[in-house]
């Protein structure tokens, strides 16, 4: 007997949600020794919300989730979607090796976004560790565009060393504005670095935002997010105003493969961005 299904999905044999579309590399911008930003042109408009990600496929190599770090509309009306990729293994290395004009597979956007609309008037605190700045970048750009809608705005960013700082050019530009606070720290410094040294939680502890009315967006290694959450709680930021972007192995991004499960959540579709109260109890469980 025919199965029960969602009424809007009655069409059978439709295009597979596993199938990527073609994207073309139109720009490559080296960020650090192991991070590169690829501009990928896709036909027509590409709408997404800050915090969402795409699955990028390299011919014959594999497919991995990469956050959308920005976009622009090309002269030909197509969209260039930016992805900032840290080389850690097979697929990311193959992505980083793609030359201008070469093509790849792209499907998305997937997942939840940083909630922002409901927080007009609040102080905003964006907290990033390492490559975690990538999914926060489009959020930050959005905030800059609608700057008057919010209270004080902070971007607190921690990198391993001065050489690991991504979006250097952006950071320099943004720093010139007087209506935002940008703080960068590194775990290990060397001669010539005049900035902060130490973990990002130090910046979180002392940034002059109003804890009760601050909304915090965090993306970075899990351990960094854990300590950041502790600091925010100590400062009295309500859990409901804290959002984290989580990461797990992903083979599909469409709720089928089961790999991204985190307790009852599927990080690919319920996340990657979660309000803290939704995952608070799982953050402490090892090997979840």
């Amino acid at each position: 007997m025919a199965p029960a299904q969602r009424p809007d999905n009655t069409l059978s044999g439709g295009p597979s949600p596993w199938l990527p579309q073609k994207g073309t590399v139109v720009s490559r911008q080296r960020q650090t020794h192991d991070v590169i930003t690829l501009g990928l042109e896709v036909p027509g408009t590409f709408s997404y919300h800050p915090g969402q990600f795409n699955m990028l496929y390299v011919h014959g190599v594999g497919e991995v989730p990469i956050s959308i770090s920005g976009h622009r509309t090309a002269e030909n009306g197509h969209t260039v979607v930016f992805h900032t990729i840290k080389v850690v293994g097979n697929v990311t290395q193959a992505l980083a090796r793609l030359k201008k004009g070469e093509s790849l597979g792209i499907r998305g956007p997937y997942g939840s976004a940083w909630p922002i609309e409901t927080f007009a008037g609040n102080d905003l605190v964006l907290i990033a560790g390492g490559i975690g700045l990538a999914p926060l970048r489009p959020l930050f750009l959005h905030v800059l565009e609608h700057r008057e809608a919010f209270g004080n705005v902070f971007l607190l960013y921690g990198a391993r060393t001065p050489a690991d700082i991504v979006f250097r050019r952006d950071l320099e530009q943004w720093r010139k504005r007087f209506d935002i606070n940008i703080e960068v720290t590194v775990d290990h410094a060397w001669a010539g670095w005049y900035g902060n040294v130490g973990v990002v939680t130090k910046l979180v502890a002392r940034a002059p935002f109003d804890p009760v009315h601050a909304v915090c967006y965090i993306c970075g290694p899990e351990i960094m997010m854990w300590f950041t959450v502790q600091t925010l709680r100590e400062r009295g930021v309500p859990d409901t105003n804290v959002f984290l972007s989580m990461e797990r192995n992903m083979k599909c991004a469409i709720g089928f493969c089961g790999h991204c499960q985190y307790g009852p959540e599927f990080i690919c579709k319920d996340g990657p961005v979660f309000p803290l109260p939704k995952i608070w109890k799982y953050l402490r469980i090892r090997e979840l």
Partner: peptide, 20 residues
């Protein structure tokens, strides 16, 4: 499995075609 492959945000067309 119908719930997994047919009743979520995405539908698996291979499962759907076999199942229907």
């Amino acid at each position: 499995q119908d719930r997994v492959f047919l009743q979520q945000e995405f539908v698996d067309p291979e499962y759907q075609a076999r199942r229907e």
